[in-house]
């Protein structure tokens, strides 16, 4: 499961939804793997405003990955200045863009848990598939 997916997930328990602590879910005891994919620079530029950067930083730190800057990169940070172009296909990604791609789309939780900061419920990740099904008494 990709780290970017965590940007769109929250605790499945209804009563947690209103609590800010239910996002992001916190990875615990994680085994990570890198699954390489082609970089999509227009996507990276456009996804920036949709990222909850503080959550990305928190998750990254909790996984023991290198610390991220306090503020999100800008669109300009992602494109080599000499390659800036009207045509997306001409643009060359910077190291910042490559690092962001590696973090959000290539770094995957293979095994582990995702923990809600509100109710402490643990969701298992097995073979890359996160399980958000709740036992009957929690639905």
């Amino acid at each position: 499961m990709k780290l970017l997916t965590l940007n769109f997930l929250t605790c499945a328990i209804k009563t947690c939804k209103g609590s800010p602590a239910s996002f992001p879910l916190h990875p615990r005891d994680s085994e990570l793997e890198i699954i390489e994919t082609d970089i999509n620079l227009p996507f990276l530029k456009n996804i920036l405003p949709r990222l909850t950067w503080d959550a990305v930083r928190t998750i990254s730190t909790e996984l023991g990955l290198p610390e991220l800057p306090a503020t999100a990169p800008t669109r300009e940070d992602l494109v080599e200045p000499s390659s800036t172009s009207e045509d997306d296909a001409e643009e060359v990604p910077t190291q910042v863009a490559k690092d962001l791609h590696r973090l959000l789309l290539e770094t995957c939780v293979k095994e582990g848990k995702l923990v809600c900061g509100c109710c402490e419920h643990e969701y298992q990740v097995k073979e890359g598939v996160a399980n958000f099904l709740l036992p009957g008494h929690l639905v």
Binding site: T5, F8, L9, A12, K17, F23, L105, V129, A130, L134
Partner: peptide
């Protein structure tokens, strides 16, 4: 023109999706 796939999560409907 490849788009970006996230994941398929195992869950009940959209209960785990951020509002």
């Amino acid at each position: 023109q490849p788009s970006v796939f996230l994941d398929v999560v195992n869950g009940d409907l959209a209960s785990s999706i951020r509002h």
